[in-house]
């Protein structure tokens, strides 16, 4: 009886109008500007690569860094245009548990494969040889830096940068139409009502945090007996901790939008995010190389626990308040 009453109260507290307002803010103040930023920085990367394709070029590295930053800022929004035509997979093939990126790039270079001169053909080669993580490998892997020939490597850099921009642009334009699918749910659309649209937005927050904890932090941590620093994300360019920080900042913004009508939950989220971001900023170990020694490891473990504390608030407090709690089996009982 009590349970039924409290559920009814929650439903009343969170009206369809409030759901719609959150979805609108998610689009206008979070997703759409971030995809714009990705498109702009990817355009710049492609442009810079036309004149600077040497892996040592400060101009190229700066453009690469900015565009990669922009990707991390949208990496949790895995819906609609990002998922069409494997665009997000092509932008971000990571984790790469079987070393496909190294294999694919080496094969291209070894054969001096002319596919790099055909934009359409290049867009259909293995996703492992495309996108930000392939570019990172190409620019920073010690074994590839001297691979012959410099001219071909240069052309490969340009081909990857160009294709990153094509995908970023396609996602951005895709959102021009897809935003209405979320904004105006309809009985025969993918989201039947405002709650389903809100659930999709919540999912971006939830799965983004899971990915940061499990993949960005869990993979390098491995186990105490077997730490895996070489499994850290983008460790070659020493961007691992930076990605955690950028992902948390984007996640924080989204969490506060979702919790806007819940002052108490907002407070707990602020405390948890502030602490976590402070922890990641204090880590003086950009590639998480220190997970292999006890004190370095401890800092990354504490950071992961802090991320998991945020996840706890999101699952146990925010989801019920928004009315998007999943059932025992529907919450992946598999």
């Amino acid at each position: 009886m009590l349970r039924k009453v409290s559920i009814a109260l929650i439903c009343m507290a969170h009206s369809a109008m409030a759901d719609q307002a959150i979805v609108g803010r998610f689009l206008d103040e979070h997703a759409l500007p971030a995809f714009d930023q990705l498109d702009r920085s990817a355009a710049n990367l492609a442009e810079v690569s036309a004149t600077h394709c040497d892996g040592q070029s400060p101009e190229l590295l700066a453009a690469y860094g900015q565009a990669f930053d922009a990707w991390v800022g949208v990496s949790h929004i895995r819906v609609g245009p990002s998922e069409e035509e494997d665009r997000a997979f092509a932008l971000a093939f990571w984790p790469d548990t079987k070393g496909f990126t190294a294999k694919s790039l080496n094969a291209l270079i070894k054969a001096a494969d002319p596919v790099v001169y055909e934009p359409e053909g290049f867009a259909s080669i293995s996703i492992a040889a495309r996108g930000f993580y392939a570019l990172e490998f190409l620019l920073f892997d010690a074994g590839l830096q001297d691979a012959e020939t410099a001219t071909y490597r240069c052309d490969l850099v340009r081909a990857i940068a160009h294709e990153i921009h094509q995908n970023a642009a396609a996602i951005k334009w895709g959102w021009q139409g897809y935003q209405d699918v979320l904004r105006v749910p309809s009985a025969d659309g993918p989201y039947k009502d405002d709650t389903e649209a809100l659930r999709e937005v919540f999912k971006a927050l939830h799965t983004g945090l899971q990915f940061t904890s499990d993949a960005r932090l869990g993979r390098p941590l491995g186990t105490f007996e077997r730490p895996r620093p070489r499994r850290a994300e983008a460790w070659r360019s020493e961007r691992s901790a930076r990605h955690v920080q950028l992902a948390l900042v984007a996640s924080y913004e989204l969490a506060l939008m979702l919790a806007a009508d819940e002052p108490l939950i907002t407070q707990s989220l602020q405390a948890a995010y502030d602490r976590t971001i402070e922890l990641v900023e204090q880590i003086d170990d950009p590639a998480f190389a220190g997970v292999a020694d006890p004190s370095g490891r401890f800092r990354v473990e504490v950071l992961r626990q802090a991320v998991d504390r945020i996840r706890e608030i999101v699952t146990l407090e925010l989801a019920p308040a928004l009315g998007v709690t999943a059932g025992f089996n529907s919450l992946d009982g598999d």
């Binding site: 548990t97 079987k98 996703i127 492992a128 990915f211 499990d214 869990g218 993979r219 941590l221 992946d332």
Partner: peptide, 14 residues
């Protein structure tokens, strides 16, 4: 999946 990363799916693209 790998126990180091819980139930996170590691190879969806492939």
């Amino acid at each position: 999946t790998h126990p180091d990363s819980g139930r996170t799916k590691l190879n969806i693209p492939t």
